[in-house]
Write a protein that binds this DNA or RNA. Structure first.
Lengths: 130, 130
DNA sequence: TGCGGTACTTACCTTTTTGTAAGGGGCGAT
DNA sequence: ATCGCCCCTTACAAAAAGGTAAGTACCGCA
């Protein structure tokens, strides 16, 4: 795993961008890191209701390899690791803005169910249709 | 399959939008339909090098259920079916614009391999890392 | 002594997604 | 007569993504 930066072949830019955001939690991780600037592992974990530690590290590692997030390890005990967006991660988030707006519109139209993170945090499994 | 319009629960708009575009060929289908306005099944097939008939119909059906594409069947023989973007499909495509630009930038940065569709059409398997 | 918190890793299993190959039914061209 | 074109469908198989549970190693608190 962690096959260095993803490497197409891509057919268009959307293709390349989607490759980097596709993953069950990546959109949310981006959002969390964008709103809080910097987050520790356990904070992210609490912010993404239902994520497992494995998936979280896996996604974070991939995003790091893709140059989207920065990982800063403090040589302390107990361990401390801080995650934040890189410049590219930040611009990606901005590029996702219109898409997010479209999605919100769609949710409004469809009357899809929306989950409030704060509300479900710590309320275990949390099934997501996919 | 074809479980009516997707229905979260979503945590944010990006989440909802990604749900609708995630699928190996959906980005390309959107792009094809946007640039050509209207396309027949076999035309789309030729435009997406490596796609199987099964995946193409599957994706088209999902996108139809999601209200992104319109499917017009002519009761002729041989059969004729025309696909085009709906209003929502069109706005989605516009929302994908910035993301596409970001992706192109990324491709430029990374020097990732890019495949020219016209060049590879009809050149069978076409492996894609995913 | 035992529990909770820190940030993970590993092995194993289930679910989802994608691919492969074949068939169908009518028609025109070779 | 056989081929290919059209737009699919179905059954089956492979691959990828995701989830569960446990283990690591050290600390502070009660």
């Amino acid at each position: 795993m962690a096959k260095a930066p993803r490497c197409g072949p891509y057919i268009c830019g959307v293709d390349a961008a989607l490759d980097v955001v596709s993953g069950k939690w990546k959109g949310l991780i981006l959002w969390e890191l964008d709103t809080h600037r910097v987050r520790r592992f356990a904070e992210l974990r609490r912010g993404l209701p239902g994520v497992s530690e494995k998936m979280l590290t896996q996604h974070l590692r991939e995003m790091e390899a893709d140059g989207l997030v920065h990982r800063k390890v403090y040589a302390e005990v107990p361990p401390r690791v801080e995650y934040s967006l890189t410049e590219h991660g930040h611009t990606l988030n901005q590029a996702l803005g219109p898409l997010g707006a479209w999605g919100s519109e769609r949710i409004r139209r469809e009357g899809s169910q929306v989950v409030d993170v704060a509300e479900t945090a710590h309320r275990q499994p949390h099934v997501r249709s996919r």
